[in-house]
Design a protein around this nucleic acid. Structure first.
Length: 836
RNA sequence: GCCGGGAUGGCGGAAUUGGUAGACGCAGAGGACUUAAAAUCCUCCGGAGCUUAGCUCCUCGCGGGUUCAAGUCCCGCUCCCGGUACCA
């Protein structure tokens, strides 16, 4: 290693200097534009590995470049430090979650410093710090006052191993997002946030993000919100005054409804059956279904099952009586938990009807069928068919609506009719559910609520915030949260009447803590507000957000919701928190995402000890474009390491010329040939690197710099003043272009070159067009589109000249033989294609 | 099923608007330096064929099409990855 630059002492020197000098302390110089760059803050789980590094290396390259471009850059970091792993680790290691978390933060902070990421450490935040969660609670209080945070009893996702409720977004394929164990449905009371009130706003807001966000994230959010437009239709229960409401996106098929189906959880289910003699069967069916777990009931290929209630509903369109069934495929959470079933035109209804021998009645036929002579036997047709027809067509067997095209007129006309008769109305349904935020865990922000026997549910007043999470507490393996057993925490006074009251012992979902943290960085030490208005107005929204695709729905949707809420109550002057989003791919090792739990991590400490932080950062940016997954290769990093050695050796070898420097003449005129070639390469590279960095093509930017290094390393420039100036310019440009990627090395070489000032604030180089002028360009000759020859011409040669030269080219004439050219296409500066 | 994204050498990946496919790097082969090794430097490196200083043909998942010209545009498939799903 002796022939390599001494990266250990160089990196130590500069990282210490940057911390000591507070080099990256945010400034708000007037007259400069702001740029807020943010990487998703980490959960302090322990040591960082090279998989984590990718996120921060990308962010730092952007931040450093923007800083060189003269922006006032806000580039902060913090810790998403509440959460389950701290509790699990505490139980395992007989320590306390707080101690474990703080220890990990210290360790990871040191690693960030060692990596030389350009953070302003004075703005560091941790969500588990009372100075932070005071404001999480404050936001909850605002939501409570506005009716956005509310309490209800409902079926919730319960993860037994974690001992807590989960939000819908945290259930992945029926399993817990954290521990991967099966989630079951349980009826419970808890706190919910009315994100569904914002469903339409969140959907419409996506349009505004179309330019800056990856399309797939937008579609994922769109699908998650799942808007569908349809109608609510009221059916009366035959022989009773009870009514049942169904939601349908196909009111045009109402005449084809041959039965109705309720979810087993439907409140009317047990009531309806009274006195019909069907009670034993129905009760047994409901109990059986409710005891099934979600995959058994609704997983892939789950069988459709149901039971007849013995009662009938009246179809409001034609007064027909249709049987009411209870069916396992009807979901209580969606729509009204009851459906009208049209077997002819819905595949699920079709399967169910076939199984239980219910009528199948066609009410839509294709336009081709309509042209045929008869539609009378379509009912029989469906009885032998294997599937429902869910496409569009002409309405038949539909009373006054027969003959209409369902999509073009039918849906609208039927909806209008229902409205007129008071039988229903047009409605919109969303797949999105309200966000359950109660967690039966200890390590999270307390919910600022007390329960008073006299006053009921009472919000803790703002001047009593934060409700401190006690850290002096018995923490052991027994199930449930320790604060739920702590009288000292639970027993309190009612803020309203002063009487005895109990504190809420559920804590908040940690995603609440991370749904607003980007605001806090703008005003991190503020103890009178979540953030000062002027700080929010100046810095927000985030100009560029960088993070993993795994948060496409969870964190990114929740943050958008919080921001809209804060906007509506007048705190935020913006509706979208993140203007642009870059989702970096995963780091893969041995076919799996690099993670501690998979045991395939590559230690960041080992890599930076062996190759240095700079080379590690350089490699991770070079190996693949940021959005794509990256296969880690220990061998690959050697290449980046060798490249840095080459740059270092070349610079040391040229140091005399570099220090002498001098003004290069304008453009390329008057430069010796070799020097002109080098200078042209330098400026063309600058041009490409600027272009690539603007589109986050770090891999190609780095490749271009490597290519430049190969060119200037091979060149042998003379000793004349002009050539010396070109060498110095090349060295300077090379360092400036590498500075966002390998900051320690570049700072060191900058100093050795005796350049004034700091490289971190030096303007990023821009290309001079006069230095990119070519003295000759290569023209390709094709015959019938195939490459046949090449020749050089001065730039600006005319079409006629190019054609003449191409036709005169020996190889071309050899190929053409005696066939005359039929057509000649000339693309000036590029090629000539001869068609024979 | 539906919605996104993708498929280029042994490997990671390049190829701004259709215009020289394989930049840059890794791995590999040969050589220089060295007592030796490491480090460094130089050369070669998609495939096949031939009358082998060179030349020809093939090659960007497969099959068609548009065009003077297609990795790039259009149509039809195959496979892989991600998201989502009894959502009425």
């Amino acid at each position: 290693m002796s022939s390599h630059y001494d990266f250990k002492s160089i990196e130590a020197k500069w990282r210490d200097k940057w911390i000591k000098d507070k080099t990256f302390k945010v400034s708000t110089r007037p007259g400069q534009k702001k740029f807020y760059l943010l990487e998703m803050f980490p959960y302090p789980s322990g040591k960082l590995h090279v998989g984590h590094l990718r996120n921060y290396a990308i962010g730092d390259a952007i931040a450093r470049r923007k800083r060189m471009d003269g922006f006032n850059v806000l580039h902060p970091i913090g810790w998403d430090s509440f959460g389950m792993p701290a509790e699990n680790a505490a139980i395992q290691n007989k320590t306390h979650p707080h101690k474990w978390t703080v220890g990990n933060i210290d360790e990871m902070r040191n690693q960030f410093v060692k990596m030389g990421i350009s953070y302003d450490w004075e703005r560091e935040v941790a969500t588990s710090h009372p100075g932070y969660y005071k404001w999480t609670q404050w936001i909850f209080a605002r939501m409570f006052d506005e009716g956005v945070a509310y309490r209800k009893k409902s079926f919730v996702n319960w993860c037994a191993p974690c001992g807590t409720v989960l939000a819908n977004e945290q259930v992945i394929d029926g399993n817990c997002w954290r521990c991967d164990n099966q989630v079951v449905q349980q009826e419970r009371e808890g706190w919910f946030l009315a994100i569904t009130k914002y469903a339409d706003d969140l959907l419409n807001g996506l349009k505004e993000l179309a330019e800056g966000w990856p399309e797939r994230v937008l579609t994922m959010q769109e699908n998650w919100i799942g808007k569908s437009i349809g109608a609510e239709v009221e059916f009366t229960v035959d022989g009773s005054s009870e009514k049942l409401t169904v939601f349908t996106t196909r009111p045009d098929t109402l005449f084809g409804a041959t039965f109705m189906a309720l979810a087993p959880e439907h409140p009317m289910a047990r009531q309806l059956v009274g006195g019909t003699g069907q009670e034993p069967e129905v009760t047994a069916f409901i109990n059986e279904t409710l005891n099934q777990d979600s995959t058994e009931r609704s997983g892939e290929g789950a069988e459709k099952k149901g039971v007849f209630t013995g009662r009938y509903a009246v179809n409001p369109m034609n007064g027909e009586k249709i049987p009411i069934w209870i069916a396992n495929f009807v979901l209580i959470e969606y729509g009204s938990g009851a459906i009208m079933s049209v077997p002819a035109h819905d595949q699920r209804d079709f399967e169910f009807a076939k199984k239980y021998g219910i009528d199948i009645r066609a009410v839509i036929v294709t336009e081709e069928q309509m042209d045929g002579e008869s539609t009378s036997n379509l009912i029989e047709d469906y009885a032998i068919l294997k599937e429902a027809y869910s496409g569009d067509g002409i309405m038949v067997n539909s009373g006054q609506f027969s003959g209409l095209h369902n999509r073009r007129e039918g849906i609208e006309k039927v909806a209008e009719y229902l409205k007129e008769k008071g039988l229903g109305k047009k409605t919109v349904n969303y797949r999105l559910r309200d966000w359950g935020v109660s967690r039966q865990r200890y390590w999270g922000s307390p919910i600022p609520i007390v329960f008073c026997d006299k006053c009921g549910v009472v919000r803790v007043p703002d001047d009593q915030l934060p409700v401190i999470l006690p850290t002096e507490i018995e923490f052991n393996e027994s199930s449930g949260s320790p604060i739920a057993r702590s009288d000292a925490f639970i027993k309190t006074e009612c803020p309203k009447c002063g009487g005895p009251a109990r504190r809420e012992t559920d804590t908040m979902d940690t995603f609440m803590c991370s749904s607003w943290y980007f605001n806090r960085y703008t005003s991190a030490r503020n103890d009178t507000a979540m953030a000062a208005k002027e700080d929010l107005d100046y810095w927000m929204p985030v100009d560029q957000y960088v993070g993993g695709i795994e948060h496409a729905i969870l964190h990114l949707l929740y943050s958008r919701f919080f921001t809209r809420f804060l906007h509506d109550i007048g705190i935020a002057g913006f509706q979208e928190p993140f203007k642009r989003l870059l989702t970096q791919g995963m780091v893969i090792k041995e076919g799996a995402k690099m993670s501690k739990s998979k045991g395939n991590v590559v230690s960041l400490d080992v890599m930076s000890d062996r190759y240095g932080t700079d080379a590690t950062r350089l490699f991770i940016l070079f190996a693949a474009p940021p959005e794509r997954d990256l296969e880690w290769s220990d061998a690959g990093i050697e290449g980046s390491f060798r490249f840095m050695g080459r740059v270092s050796r070349w610079m040391e070898g040229q140091m005399g010329a570099i220090k002498r420097g001098g003004e290069a003449p304008a453009g390329l005129d008057g430069l010796p040939r070799e020097a002109a070639d080098v200078r042209r390469a330098v400026h063309k590279t600058i041009n490409k690197v600027n272009y690539d960095m603007d589109r986050f093509g770090f891999n190609t930017a780095i490749a271009a710099v490597m290519e430049l290094m190969n060119t200037i390393g091979a060149a042998r420039l003379a000793d004349d003043p002009a050539s010396t100036a070109v060498t110095a310019e090349a060295a300077e440009s090379l360092l400036l272009m590498l500075a966002p990627f390998t900051p320690h090395f570049c700072a060191e070489m900058w100093e050795r070159m005796e350049k004034p000032g700091s490289i971190v604030d030096h303007p990023f180089p821009t290309a001079d067009p006069a230095c990119m002028v070519e003295d000759s360009i290569e023209i390709v000759v094709q015959i019938n589109g195939k490459l046949r020859g090449k020749f050089s011409v001065p730039p600006g040669a005319s079409k006629e000249e190019l054609e003449k030269l191409a036709l005169a080219n020996e190889k071309v004439t050899a190929h053409m033989g005696d066939k005359p050219p039929r057509k000649v296409i000339v693309v000036p500066g590029k090629l000539v294609n001869i068609v024979v």
